[in-house]
């Protein structure tokens, strides 16, 4: 088995190198970086599962999130350790977007990254294999301010390492914006009544107790 893996590494690496430059596959519609359909991480004896995911990027997907501008159609993904993730990334905008995942092992993914970038409307498919450890990987589009205005997601492997912050519809921001509260007279009135009710309640209970004790 191990010998077979080594053999695969041996034959695939030069073949792959022939069609890319430093891990990059580029054409006029976009770029794929560190495509890896077959090299296994050190801790994975074999691919545990083949998982196909489709992730769409575009302005339209932020419609349901007030105050945001760009996002993916789904922002939370779950796969088992040692899975091969085949990402079909679809860009529904006329501008550039990326699917960029960080934290992969640097010995097989230079800079720890796997990226699909599409320069306008279009789609590309590429794969990466995750190691076995339980971890939450950070996915985003790094076009200036796209992450910040909503284009951020997470890939949980195994038991994961918890949720990342500021994922639309899932988690709050680390540095949240502060908004005023729209209090009305009803707010204050209901608070006042509750306050008085609290006093009355205690005094009533107290008097009841006192009467009992007095007896």
């Amino acid at each position: 088995m191990k010998a077979f893996t080594l053999f695969l590494v041996f034959i695939s690496t030069p073949l792959f190198a022939a069609m890319n430059h430093g891990g990059m596959i580029m054409d006029e519609t976009g770029m794929i970086m560190n495509h890896n359909p077959d090299i296994l991480p050190k801790d994975c004896p074999k691919i545990s599962k083949d998982i196909d995911i489709t992730i769409r990027a575009g302005q339209q997907y932020s419609k349901d999130f007030a105050g945001k501008m760009f996002t993916y159609d789904k922002r939370d993904w779950q796969v088992p350790g040692c899975a091969r993730v085949n990402v079909t990334f679809i860009n529904d905008d006329d501008i550039r977007h990326q699917f960029m995942i960080h934290g992969l092992p640097g010995y097989m993914y230079p800079k720890g990254m796997f990226t699909i970038e599409i320069y306008g409307k279009g789609q590309k498919t590429a794969s990466f294999i995750v190691p076995s450890r339980d971890y939450t990987y950070y996915i985003h589009c790094e076009v200036s301010q796209h992450t910040e205005k909503g284009m951020k997601a997470q890939l949980k492997v195994g038991k994961s390492s918890g949720d990342l912050n500021s994922i639309l519809g899932l988690t709050a921001a680390l540095t949240p914006d502060i908004y005023p509260i729209n209090n009305t007279q009803i707010t204050w009135l209901s608070m006042l009544i509750s306050f008085i009710l609290g006093i009355v309640f205690i005094l009533y209970v107290g008097n009841f107790l006192r009467l009992k004790l007095g007896k």
Partner: peptide
């Protein structure tokens, strides 16, 4: 524009009740 949050009425009422209870207890 962003505007405001609406008040969390239940939390506010419970809080006011609690304050009332404290004041009532002190009076008692």
């Amino acid at each position: 524009e962003a505007g405001t949050f609406s008040p969390n009425s239940l939390q506010l009422i419970l809080f006011a009740l609690l304050l009332g209870t404290i004041v009532g207890l002190i009076i008692f």
